[in-house]
Simulated assay, not measured.
Amino acid sequence: MHLTVWNVPETCSEQDVRSFFERELGHYAKGVTVYDVGTPNAHADLELDSEVPYVADAVARELQTRRLAGVALRVSATPFDDEPQPQRG
């Protein structure tokens, strides 16, 4: 499961962002990839270590309440990791 985090402050280094999310997510943090560090478009992709449905949505809601370097985060969950849905019929 993946989350995309927007509003990453330009002042944060890639290591700052990684450390923050690893601390906040604990054992759920499988991977943190940071893009466009030091720019207004800086954002992160968080890979969660969970197979339980809706965990990403719950984690996204929790991270929305957090601030990184004083900046409120914007978080979106990728629903079901874009897995194909079973065919009905």
Rank of each mutant, 00 (worst) to 15 (best):
V34N: 00
A56T: 06
A77S: 12
G31V: 07
L63H: 01
L73A: 03
P86M: 05
T33L: 11
N41E: 10
A77K: 04
V75H: 03
N7H: 13
G26K: 02
F21E: 00
V52R: 12
Y35Q: 05
L3P: 03
R23M: 10
S19P: 09
S50F: 01
P86F: 06
R61Q: 14
G89D: 07
S13I: 10
Q85S: 13
S13P: 08
L46I: 04
F21M: 04
V59K: 00
K30W: 08
R88E: 15
A29I: 03
P86N: 05
F21A: 02
V5S: 05
V8P: 05
A72L: 14
T65E: 13
K30S: 10
P40T: 01
T65F: 11
E10Y: 09
E51D: 14
Y54M: 13
T33Y: 09
L68R: 01
E14R: 07
S76K: 13
S50Y: 01
T4G: 15
D45Q: 07
R74S: 13
G70I: 06
R74C: 09
V75I: 07
R23S: 11
G31D: 09
T33S: 11
V34G: 00
E62F: 10
A58N: 09
L63W: 03
G70F: 07
T78A: 12
A60F: 01
Y28I: 03
L3E: 04
V71W: 02
E10D: 12
A58S: 11
A42C: 08
T65V: 08
P40A: 04
A58R: 12
T11V: 15
E51L: 13
D16N: 13
H27K: 15
D36P: 04
P9N: 09
D45V: 09
D82E: 15
Y54V: 11
S50T: 06
E83F: 14
T33N: 12
